[in-house]
Design a protein around this nucleic acid. Structure first.
Length: 483
RNA sequence: GGUCCCAUCGUCUAGUCUGGUCUAGGACGCCAGGUUUUCAUCCUGGUAACACGGGUUCAAAUCCCGUUGGGACCA
């Protein structure tokens, strides 16, 4: 499929008009994987010719997002805004060769024409009455530049993912290519750029299929070779339409903030619409993905972005990284929540113990804020929740009393760790016939939550004093309870 | 409205090119059970799909035609 002698060159060309969308990131990823697989070159080009909508802050977001995901590009970043002279040169050439012309039709006129064509159930297109007229130089400000489309052929191209795609070229009419000599439109600028940058494979979203024949027409007019095309399936929202903001988080930055790991997102995006040939497993590292990545294994149909599966995968990656690393990654979230105010530096070990307990429970880094809050603040809880099964108030009071007694009497010489605590408390719990009678209220009083790690593990971390305080609090609360 | 793309469990997919081994496999989710209190992890089991119709053939998820459905683009 790919000629080994010719170096593969691919590119991604985002417009800095918004944050890095996961769809753009996935397109970037597939280009990157393709380039790495064939040891080719991956170019990054910023399409910032739309001055009104482009913003440096979005460009920064895109670059940061790509770097965070570990999608590195080769060489310098190209900006279309710095290539205006180049486009002008080609525009001049096409005008001179009468392959392009100026058009003075107003938006209203064009809309009207289109409306009538639609009514007649015809293909909406503009065959311009100015196509053979010379420009009068004067009112060029009000004119746009169009491609003079005289082709009547059936345009075919071989898509690497979908095989042959055909269009009737006369359906496009005299389509526009520039607002003025210094304001090229998308279809025109891409053709010039891809040619000059020697792009061999254009891998982009399926939404660009309708642009392809127009670009091929321009390539033919300019005598430029046609690159190979591969149109990727779209990433869809839960309702099967193109993923957009109303479906929830769409930008890479948002996923980063929620605490998804870059390796997990990388992996998830890679298997969304692609699956390696010989492998049944879905957790794959970068090397494996690059090695196995083939465009012919890319899916044709769109894929719904399933956050549940991403959560599962992210959890897998969270369990894979080292405790030390996970702690470092979690600290910003704890800080943000205000839990670490006034906590000294030497409590890093304590934090690490907490993270160790929560590692199997976290789907994303942000989860730590809700699941482990009780280590940092006293949670208020409904006292009746301490009652195990059909337990009565009196029984609970007795249990809390003996718990208080047991804990207070734990010898300071014996170590305060979960193994030892279990050794001391468990036999007492067994005596009650159902150890839940003691363990459940203990755990609930410690965490204030329906779900949490076990009581001994929590006690080890918060220490004896805090544990006694927790039991005192429970005793006071239950005393106030009627009946 | 025009043009184009697509169609296997709820979701992501294997299988389709090179028809038979597919009473359709895996993963996520969900459900049930186990793992000496809850939750998570881990383990076991279960749930659930070839859009429809017609052809070709001894045989079709797989090839052909049509229908339906969904989507994208242009406005």
């Amino acid at each position: 499929m790919t000629n080994k002698n010719k170096k593969v060159v691919v590119r991604i060309a985002p417009s800095p008009t918004g944050a890095l969308h996961v769809g753009t990131a996935r397109t970037a990823l597939f280009n990157y994987l393709f380039a790495k697989h064939y040891r080719g070159k991956f170019i990054l080009r910023i399409e910032d010719t739309d001055k009104e909508r482009s913003d440096k802050k979005w460009e920064k977001d895109i670059l940061d997002g790509l770097r965070w995901l570990g999608i590195d590009w080769d060489g310098k970043i190209h900006h279309q805004s710095k290539r205006i002279k180049i486009y002008k040169k080609y525009l001049d050439k096409m005008l001179k060769e009468k392959k392009a012309f100026y058009c003075w039709h107003t938006k209203e006129e064009l809309d009207k024409e289109r409306g009538e064509q639609t009514k007649q159930k015809q293909a909406p297109r503009h065959i311009c009455s100015y196509r053979n007229k010379d420009a009068t130089k004067k009112n060029l400000k009000d004119a746009i530049i169009r491609f003079k489309n005289d082709t009547k052929d059936t345009l075919k191209f071989n898509d690497l993912i979908r095989d042959e795609i055909k269009f009737e070229s006369e359906n496009f009419g005299d389509f526009s290519i520039a607002k003025s000599l210094t304001e090229p439109l998308y279809n025109f600028a891409v053709v010039i750029d891809d040619y000059q940058m020697k792009v061999t494979h254009i891998i982009r979203g399926e939404d660009h299929i309708p642009n392809t024949p127009r670009q091929i027409l321009l390539q033919q007019a300019l005598g430029m070779p046609m690159p190979k095309y591969a149109h990727l399936p779209l990433i869809l929202g839960s309702d099967k339409s193109k993923l957009s903001k109303r479906h929830g988080a769409t930008s890479v930055t948002e996923y980063k903030k929620l605490g998804y790991l870059p390796d997990a997102l990388f992996n998830f995006l890679a298997i969304l619409g692609w699956r390696g040939k010989n492998d049944e497993k879905e957790i794959l590292d970068r090397k494996e993905i690059i090695q196995e990545f083939l465009l012919e294994d890319v899916q044709k149909s769109g894929a719904i972005f399933d956050v549940e599966k991403l959560n599962w995968m992210n959890g897998e990656y969270i369990r894979k990284i080292s405790l030390k690393e996970l702690t470092q990654l979690s600290i910003p979230y704890l800080t943000e929540a205000g839990y670490l105010d006034g906590i000294k530096r030497n409590t890093l070990q304590k934090i690490q113990k907490i993270i160790a307990l929560e590692q199997t429970r976290m789907k994303k880094l942000l989860d730590i804020v809700d699941t482990a809050d009780f280590f940092f603040k006293q949670n208020d809880y409904d006292i009746t929740k301490l009652l195990w099964k059909d337990m009565r108030k009196l029984e609970l009071q007795n249990i809390l009393f003996s718990l208080d007694d047991i804990i207070k009497n734990i010898d300071l010489k014996s170590s305060w760790d979960k193994e030892n605590l279990e050794k001391i408390i468990m036999p007492e719990a067994e005596k009650l016939g159902d150890r839940g009678k003691m363990l459940w209220p203990l755990r609930y009083a410690l965490s204030g939550k329906d779900k949490s790690p076990g009581p001994f593990e929590i006690m080890e971390i918060i220490g004896k004093e805090a544990t006694i305080a927790v039991i005192k609090k429970a005793q006071n609360k239950i005393a106030k309870l009627q009946k």
